[in-house]
Design a protein around this nucleic acid. Structure first.
Ligand code: MN
Ligand code: MN
Ligand code: MN
Ligand code: MN
Lengths: 147, 147
DNA sequence: GTCAAAGTGTAGCCAAGGCTACAGAATGTT
DNA sequence: AACATTCTGTAGCCTTGGCTACACTTTGAC
């Protein structure tokens, strides 16, 4: 079916734009784990003074094995500093990222709440949406909520 | 560091809720590929009469190899029907899913546009956001936009 | 100090979803 | 009919991110 007998070929949506959008979405998925981890580590550090593996595994909803392997990758990428049987610390880069993520998370949740969404649903949806909000959209959400 | 000397232990956010939210986000990621594929297949069928592997690979921004393997999985899961060197067809389940996804995609884009987001950014952001919008939020977005 | 419980680390399994390289099939043009 | 191009399929590689099972370390309680 190389060239099917094409009817007028009205493009529902340009393929190139959708391809670019999906590529962007995949890039966002690649950084998503790092974002959720550093945010969780910062939250735990703020609440308890420090973060350990089991606390993270409870908060992230995965086993401690997954946490461990992911922390190794995040250390490789320069976001955290881990040593065997020691608490987990964010690097400067990790802290910066955590701060940005916490801000963005708050804006998304506040926006959803302003739309009348229940707190629980707002939290659930925000956890996924947050990673796909461009700066342009984030600003619009903040403005809309604040107004 | 089993039990660190804990300061008052003010929970920034309950761990259980965040864990549940992240689990939900992961479930959504698992269905995301299927959703984007059936939507793309439906779009291509509407525009050209039928969908083939290279058209899909162009539209999805991946190689034809990835498309092929994913189509095998989607067939296993009952969304598409593929035969070697034949066009790709949606099953009833696939068509139903595509229809829902197209509707949801449109609502998310329209909402972003109504916020003043540029068309291109709206498309890009929507491609990621759409999969994380609960029915409750989707309804709120539709209502907000229509108003 | 002993010891059980909790925490941590590691080996090894799996599926998804990217990719390159190569081979075979279909097609359009000459 | 021949051939170049395009399309399709497959083998095999990689990374991410889940998991269980098992072993070791730390810690708190007695
Ligand atoms: Mn998140
Ligand atoms: Mn978050
Ligand atoms: Mn999408
Ligand atoms: Mn879509």
């Amino acid at each position: 079916m190389k060239k099917p007998a094409r009817p007028p070929a009205k493009p529902v949506r340009p393929s190139a734009l959708q391809a670019e959008s999906l590529r962007q979405t995949r890039r966002e998925h690649a950084s998503e784990t790092a974002e959720d981890y550093v945010e969780a580590i910062a939250d735990l550090a703020a609440a308890q003074g420090e973060a350990c593996v089991v606390d993270l595994s409870r908060r992230l909803g995965v086993t401690h094995v997954t946490v461990n392997r992911t922390l190794a990758r995040l250390q490789r990428e320069g976001y955290v500093s881990v040593q065997p049987y020691r608490a987990i610390f964010l690097t400067a880069a990790g802290s910066k990222l955590a701060k940005e993520c916490r801000r963005r998370h708050g804006i998304v949740v506040a926006f959803l709440r302003s739309l009348g969404i229940s707190e629980k649903t707002a939290e659930i949806d925000a956890e996924g949406i947050e990673h796909h909000v461009s700066p342009e959209t984030l600003a619009a959400l903040a403005k809309h909520t604040g107004k």
